[in-house]
Structures are given as C-alpha cells and as structure tokens.
Design a protein around this nucleic acid. Sequence first.
RNA 1: GGUCCCGUGGUGCAGCCUGGAGUGCACGCCGCCCUGUCAAGGCGGAGGUCGCGAGUUCAAAUCUCGUCGGGACCGCCA
Length: 577
Amino acid sequence: MMRTHTCGELRAEDIGKTVSLTGWVNTRREHSQHLAFVDLRDHTGLVQCVVDNDVDVRSEYVLRITGTVEARFEGSENADLATGAIEVRECTVEVLNSATPPPFPMDERADDVDELIRLKHRYIDLRRHRMQKNLRIRSTVNTAIRNAMVAQDFVEVETPMLMPSTPEGAREFLVPSRQRPGSFYALPQSPQLYKQLLMVGGLDRYYQIARCLRDEDLRADRQYEFMQLDMEMSFVEVDDVLTAVERGVLDAAEAVTGERPPTIPRITWHYAMNTYGSDKPDLRFGVELKELTPIFAETEFKAFGTAESIKGINYPGGAAQFGRNKLDALTDFAKSNGAKGMVWLKVTDDGTLESPVAKFLSDAEKSALAAALEASPGDLLLIIADDWTTTCEVLGELRNRVARPPVSQGPYRYVWVVDFPLFVGIDRATGKPKPGHHPFCHPVPEDIPKMETDPMSVRAWAYDLVLNGWELGSGSIRIHDPALQSKVFELLGITTEEADKRFGFFLKPFAYGAPPHGGFAYGIDRLAAILAGEENIREVIAFPKPQSGLDPLTGAPTEVGSAHLEELGLRVLPPTE
RNA sequence: GGUCCCGUGGUGCAGCCUGGAGUGCACGCCGCCCUGUCAAGGCGGAGGUCGCGAGUUCAAAUCUCGUCGGGACCGCCA
C-alpha cells in the first residue's frame, strides 16, 4: 500500500508515529512562503497536514504525504474534526496527480447545486462525504440483508436478464436478437416467474439481490433500473414469509442506525384504508380518519345527506396556518383527487366551529362532530362525504398533504399491510375484475366461496411492506392448485387458450408437482434512501438517471451505426410528427 | 400525455413584477502579501450567447409566444 494509515483514523494515540497518507486536497490554507495547512481527504475523513508552501498544491490534487503525527498546539485543536487533536508535521509532499478545479464545492454547499451538474461530474460528486456515506449505508444494508437471508437457509440464485417479453405489467426494455432477427428478449421487470420455477425445482428457499428494469416514467422513488431483495419460500404460510422478510429489514435498519425498530405491526388493507386512507400509511403521525356517517343520518345539509360514507380528520393546531387561500387550494386538491368537495371547519377559541357550511349543521351535529374528531380550539377539521373508497382515498391524500413529515425524517415506522383485496376495480375493456397483485395470487381460503357471488370482497394472501409512507415491497402466497388457478383466470376473463399463450411456459411446470409457496420483493434503493435520510433514491445510487432518462455523464442512450442495426435486423423509423 | 416550479461568469443567488449600458452579492479561480489556520485573512485581477429561437418595442435578462434542459407531482409503475 502507498499509505500506512487513512486520513480519518489518526488520533492522539498515534502521536509520534511516522505516517504516510494518500488522498485529495480538501482545502489549503496558506500563510506565507513556508507555511500552509492542507486538509487531506480520503474516504475516511480529513486530517490537517502542515506543509511547506513552496509546493504547488491546489484543490483536489492527489497527494501522498509522509510526516509525523504531533499534538496540535494548545488552543488550536479543532473539535469539529475527528482528527482535530492532532496534525501531521514535517511533511514530505508527493503530488501523485494534479487536478483542474472542481465545478462545484466539495462540502455540503454542493447539496444546493443543480443536480444535473452533480450528475455530469458524478465521479467528483462521489468524493463528497454525503455520497460516500450514502453508498456505504447502502452497502451495509445489502450486507445485513444477505446475512439475514443466509442465516435463514435461503439460497442465492441468479436468474436470467434475457427473458421472454410478457405483456402484463410495466413496459419492458427490449433487446433485439442477432440470431433471430425480428425477435426480442425482454429485460426482467422482476424475477417473478423464475423464482416460482425455482420453487417447483425444489430449491425451497431462494433469494437474490436482483436488478429489475421497467421502462416507466422516472420519479424521486423510481429509476429505470432498481434493485430488489427478491425471495421465495416453499411450504409456507403468510406468517412465515413476513417473519423471514422482517428479519432482513430490521437487521438492515439496526446495522445502519444502531437501533433495532420494534416488531413490525400488521394491519389489514381495510383497516389501513379506513383509518389512514391509504394502502401505504405513514404511521409516524396520527391525524387518523374518523367515522362521521351516523352523525349526519338525519342531516339537512344536502352534501352530507346523500353520501355513503362521511369521514373527517383533525389536524391539531392547524386552523391558524390555513388561511382562506390555502383552504381553497386544499379544496381544489381534494377535487382533483376525485372528491365532489371538501368541508373545512376551524375550531375557534371558545370551541365553536367556524365554517362556510356551519349554518347548515344543527347544534347536535356540530357537537357530535367535534366529539368524534376530538376537536380542541385551534384545530382544523376536514370532512369528505362520498362513496367509501373516494372518501378514504381523498382524506388519506389530505392527511399526507397537511401533516406528513419528509419520508427521511425519523423515527422508522415499518408496517405490514395484509389481506389486500384479490381484485381491484373493473377492467373497462373486458368488464372483468382486475387482479390486485397478480393473477397467481392465492385467495384467502374462507373467501373462496364468495369468488362467484361477491368477487370484490374476496381477500388475497397478498401483503405489502411500508416504511414511513413509502411502499417498500409486496408479495403473496401463490396459487399452486391448477383448478383454483383456472377459476381465477375465469373470473379475470382469461380463457384457457389465452392463459396457455401468455403464461404457458410458466404454468406448465406447475403440473409436475408445485409445492405451496409464497414470496416477497422489496426495493433496496428505497430502503437505503430512507435509512440514509434521503428523500430521493438518486442520492443512494452511484450513477442514476434524471427524469428524462438520459444519462448526462455517458450520453446514453446513443444512436448506433447502420451496420450494427442491420446485423440485428432493425430499421429506425423517421420521427413521428 | 398533463399540471406546477426553475434556467443570469465555474457554483449559489439578487436583478425581472414596474423594459433604459451585463448592474450587484457571496463562494470559487488567477496573481501578490502574510509563520498557526480551520469554508484562514488582506490587496489586486480575470471570467457572461442572462438556456435557445422568434415576436412586441426607439430599446428586452426583464413583456409575449415557442422550444430545449432540470425538478416535484398526476397519468403510468400487474
């Protein structure tokens, strides 16, 4: 090694040692012809080196410094630096490489720099403490998860990146075949199909930190490529899967923060919707949805009189921060989310309710309403009256809008949402129900008799893991019984021929003895981002892409030559108007 | 496909509403000075297609339209 120590590790105990350090010039403070201070930086931190100023040493020069560790002069210690008690003196400086000045500051001021500039120069941005910390947190998360899976007898198996195109779900990236021009592989949206085949193959417990690719529009929590902890288990029930996943995510949180979150609570999908208005509820704050429908059973207020479901939330102390403009904006927000309208009430200092609709409500209704929402002076009450789904969903959006802290702000509140509905909504084209999770998801057995009579009420053995209001992942127990699978296909309006065509390579193996099995997959980028205190997964990805999907560093995607295209049997169409 | 916000020396901002010479601030950069600094300090200097293109105007960083780029969100992500 060119160094004897790293920059950030030197302490008072090292005084007297002759050391060689390597790193980048973080800052240089020059005092005269023969005195300058160089803060040398590597991945472990900074250390101050006292150097002779006749060496030309500038920002981001790559140096090897050999010198002696000495205590700093009394009064000149730096408590902000881990190495602040010491400095390296009598330095011999070797310039290993010079550097042009970086395009942005290397300290936290660069957090405000246009992200595109950071991405164009990502190799410099990565030197910064924030990125070093984030990528190491991510590595810690990966390691903790791997260890947890291995400790539970999971076998790591890699699955193909080149697979057949399947029309379901997210838009795929396609890879043209050279040997079969006109035919294409698809890059995996997830290893879903393969992992179930591994169960048929008797692997018993499979896991993989898998790269998944989806050609959908990018967001703060979405990239074209992302990593999932993907797992599948045989001969299990829901509880077994949740327990196995839980160990990994709790280990990861503990490894990063030093604190183990409590056992993850489990709530049903219906409870989540009814209480938080979301299937990915953020449990870090209250502001729960309260049932108000019975209070207005006899009301003369028309907007409430005809509604199937009336619910409200109380944002404590919110009256003062919501003036008329903000309340109008909230109302518009509620409408844009599908509500017919929104009723707001402010609790005044004497406990009366101030609202444009107050005059339509009886005293009894008002006091029952205040009691149900536990209203105190200064509170802001928001009420939605609509069908149950709309009421819950809109109030859930309002709850997040007014009261939700940033996702990265602790504490970490994991929650399992279980018993998702088997079907969600009706496909307009076919008139048939749409699968809530995917078409191989096992119904809750006691609900199977209702599949024909009341399909929308059938629950599934499907579950999501949520952290601070972000969906980390989802999974289910799969159907292993061909008869039950046929029945589900039938309800979905998928004929036997269609099923064979679309899922044949996947379904046929199930005839050869498929074990009951189930699994889960969760996003490592999202988990790492939250544990790193970031609100954007790009901050925990070494080389992410911006919203356009164009890589500002490499220029990808690029055009390719006609010979290359011809070999693949491809011709590019002129741009459409 | 849609809504909203942003684009001014290398970086971050102000200027724009109410048009009048590329005006200002901080950091960085270059040079000089300085023997104990901590994002050192002092003095001096360089550095600009105000994203791009039209339009209005005697005159556009500023007003209008378009376009490109970035961000947040909706659609989309079984």
